[in-house]
Amino acid sequence: TFELKGKVGKVVKIAEDHYLVEVEGDKWIAYSDEKLSLGDRVMVVDVDGLKLKVKRIP
């Protein structure tokens, strides 16, 4: 999972307290300090167990 840091993915689902992002064909639970929208491109900035911390990228 640490090899996911720096990888780019996209938001595929928005849940009440987390996001579902697809990175390299796999779906992961993710969270972010900013509000994300469906389809946003994101970069993995940290890995916390099986959850990814992501940030939006242009």
Results as ranks from 00 to 15, higher is better:
T1E: 15
T1I: 15
T1K: 15
T1A: 15
T1L: 14
T1N: 15
T1S: 15
T1D: 15
F2M: 15
F2A: 15
F2Q: 15
F2L: 15
F2I: 15
E3W: 11
E3G: 01
E3N: 02
L4R: 01
L4T: 03
K5G: 03
K5C: 15
K5I: 14
K5Q: 13
K5E: 15
K5W: 15
G6K: 00
G6T: 01
G6E: 02
G6L: 01
K7T: 02
K7S: 05
K7G: 02
K7P: 00
K7M: 05
V8C: 13
V8M: 07
G9I: 01
G9S: 02
G9R: 00
G9D: 00
G9L: 02
G9P: 00
K10W: 13
K10L: 13
K10Q: 11
K10C: 12
K10S: 09
K10R: 13
K10F: 12
V11Q: 00
V11F: 02
V11W: 01
V11N: 03
V11T: 14
V11C: 05
V11M: 09
V12L: 11
V12S: 07
V12G: 08
V12A: 15
K13I: 11
K13Q: 09
K13P: 02
I14V: 10
I14R: 08
I14E: 08
I14K: 09
I14Y: 06
I14L: 13
A15E: 08
A15S: 08
A15W: 11
E16W: 10
E16R: 12
E16I: 10
D17P: 14
D17K: 10
D17G: 08
D17C: 11
D17M: 11
D17S: 10
H18V: 12
H18G: 06
H18R: 09
H18D: 09
Y19L: 10
Y19H: 08
L20I: 07
L20Y: 07
L20V: 09
L20F: 12
V21T: 12
V21E: 00
V21S: 03
V21Q: 00
E22A: 08
E22N: 05
E22S: 05
E22R: 06
E22M: 04
V23K: 00
V23L: 04
V23A: 03
E24F: 03
E24W: 01
E24G: 04
E24C: 11
E24R: 02
G25V: 13
G25P: 04
G25H: 10
G25A: 11
D26P: 14
D26F: 15
K27T: 10
W28P: 01
W28V: 02
W28E: 02
W28N: 02
W28Y: 12
W28I: 03
W28H: 05
W28L: 03
I29E: 07
I29Y: 07
I29G: 06
A30R: 00
A30G: 07
A30C: 05
A30F: 01
Y31V: 05
Y31H: 04
Y31P: 03
Y31K: 14
Y31R: 10
Y31N: 05
Y31A: 09
S32A: 09
S32T: 06
S32C: 04
S32R: 15
S32E: 03
S32M: 10
D33V: 09
D33F: 13
D33Q: 12
D33P: 10
D33E: 11
E34Y: 11
E34C: 10
E34G: 10
E34F: 12
E34P: 07
E34H: 09
K35D: 06
K35I: 05
L36S: 03
L36N: 03
L36D: 00
L36V: 09
L36T: 03
L36P: 05
S37N: 11
S37Q: 13
S37A: 09
S37T: 11
L38F: 10
L38G: 09
L38A: 09
L38N: 08
L38P: 09
G39R: 13
G39S: 11
G39F: 12
G39L: 11
D40N: 07
D40K: 05
D40Y: 13
D40F: 14
D40E: 10
D40Q: 13
R41M: 15
R41L: 05
R41Q: 14
V42E: 00
V42K: 00
V42L: 04
V42T: 08
V42Q: 00
V42G: 02
M43Y: 04
M43S: 04
M43F: 04
M43V: 15
V44F: 14
V45C: 07
V45E: 14
V45R: 03
V45S: 09
V45Y: 14
D46Q: 03
D46Y: 03
D46N: 03
D46F: 03
D46C: 03
D46V: 03
V47T: 03
V47W: 03
V47C: 04
V47G: 04
D48T: 14
D48I: 11
D48E: 12
D48F: 13
D48A: 08
D48K: 07
G49M: 14
G49R: 05
G49V: 14
G49N: 12
G49D: 05
G49Q: 09
G49Y: 14
L50E: 04
L50K: 05
L50I: 09
L50M: 13
L50G: 11
L50Q: 04
K51T: 11
K51D: 05
K51H: 06
L52H: 01
L52T: 02
L52E: 00
L52C: 03
L52A: 02
L52S: 01
L52I: 04
L52W: 01
L52P: 02
L52V: 04
K53R: 13
K53W: 14
K53P: 00
K53D: 06
K53G: 05
K53F: 15
V54C: 04
V54M: 03
V54E: 00
V54R: 00
V54N: 00
V54P: 00
V54L: 04
K55T: 05
K55A: 13
K55P: 00
K55I: 14
R56W: 08
R56H: 05
R56I: 05
R56C: 04
R56N: 06
I57W: 10
I57Q: 12
I57A: 07
I57L: 10
I57G: 06
P58D: 11
P58N: 05
P58G: 14
P58R: 04
P58Y: 11
P58Q: 07
